[in-house]
């Protein structure tokens, strides 16, 4: 389908976003000797092996003990270190929520929580590992910054930016191979969204893997004469409200798209912004308050309505509600 479309962004290569993290971490480690890595027995999955090889004295295998990892990381910041903790998103949040809340967020510690395998695209492992609540858990914590980049290049840039940022960061990325459609060596500004495509009829606001699906959806909608504006919200907190409000002032309806539960995700953050500033129709592409299941990433995205086709359908629904 993608081959026959007139896409505004294209790709020649696919790669997992976790590799963007792994490569970004090595770069951040070169830039700043205080960057350290901790991992809970998932070095290969998190792509932290290159960092471990490059900086063996600054890497700490902590074993299958995530709670301890969060405490260690918080303590290391006191000595001026910039620790990146690495495990799956599920074990980076729900399993250690209280440790993050007290020792990291409430204590304002400069810990970077690197969370891989987020969402349904983790695939065959099933719902025990497919966390769809992590954005909500993390964005509710005062002081916590929440970032969900969309491809390899953006994840690499986000990792380098997170290391330079002072304060706790939740950095969410995924497992599957995904189109690389944003520029190499891009400047990543935390909290600053990116209007990728200009449009006038409907605003598509997406984060993570769903940004690519929104780019595809824009082309599909354009075939039907609908001009969609596409906004890449890599930082869910703090949210770039100005960019969103400027766009909806023009389009007057919105679709939000994310690989997360409809409760607590990007969609709710956008809905709050709209309710306070510019009430208008909003449709949600998200998981409808359920757990996931085993399957291939593509099968799961199809079944749970998280792909370009679903975004197109929701865009039409939003347009129909415009008065």
């Amino acid at each position: 389908m993608e081959q026959t479309l007139d896409l505004k962004y294209t790709y020649t290569e696919k790669k997992d976003t976790r590799s963007g993290f792994g490569d970004g971490l090595v770069e951040a480690g070169k830039q700043n000797p205080n960057v350290v890595g901790l991992c809970a027995d998932l070095i290969g999955s998190l792509k932290m092996g290159d960092f471990q090889k490059a900086f063996p004295d600054r890497f700490f295998q902590v074993g299958i003990a995530e709670a301890n990892m969060m405490g260690l990381a918080a303590g290391m910041t006191i000595g001026g270190k910039i620790p990146f903790t690495g495990t799956f998103a599920n074990f980076s949040t729900g399993r250690v929520y209280d440790q993050i809340r007290q020792s990291i967020a409430y204590s304002g510690k400069n810990v970077k929580i690197a969370a891989s395998h987020a969402g349904l695209t983790l695939g065959e492992d099933g719902a025990t590992h497919q966390i769809l609540e992590d954005i909500g858990l993390m964005k509710m914590l005062p002081h916590m910054c929440v970032i969900n980049p969309c491809d390899y290049n953006q994840t690499k840039a986000a990792t380098i930016a997170a290391a330079a940022y002072e304060g706790p960061v939740y950095l969410r990325f995924g497992r599957p191979s995904w189109p690389i459609f944003t520029p190499k060596d891009q400047v990543f500004e935390i909290g600053k969204g990116w209007k990728m495509i200009e449009g006038s009829d409907v605003t598509l606001i997406a984060t993570g893997h769903l940004v690519w699906e929104s780019v595809v959806a824009e082309a599909l909608l354009r075939q039907e004469g609908i001009r969609a504006e596409v906004i890449n919200i890599h930082t869910i907190k703090p949210l770039d409200e100005t960019l969103i409000l400027d766009s909806v002032a023009k389009t007057k309806c919105v679709v939000t798209a994310e690989e997360h539960n409809i409760l607590g995700g990007l969609g709710e953050s956008v809905a709050r912004t709209l309710a306070q500033n510019f009430p208008c129709p909003q449709e949600f592409v998200a998981v409808m308050d359920s757990f996931g299941e085993s399957g291939t990433p593509a099968q799961l995205m199809e079944k749970y309505g998280l792909n370009a086709a679903a975004i197109v359908a929701k865009a039409k629904a939003a347009l129909a509600r415009k008065g």
């Binding site: 405490g71 990381a73 303590g75 620790p83 007290q102």
Partner: peptide, 21 residues
């Protein structure tokens, strides 16, 4: 230097501090 009260976290934190030292 860090909040405490929810129990069981201090040894991990102190080990992180010691490791940084």
């Amino acid at each position: 230097r860090i909040a405490s009260g929810s129990l069981g976290q201090g040894l991990s934190v102190a080990l992180g501090v010691a490791q940084a030292k």
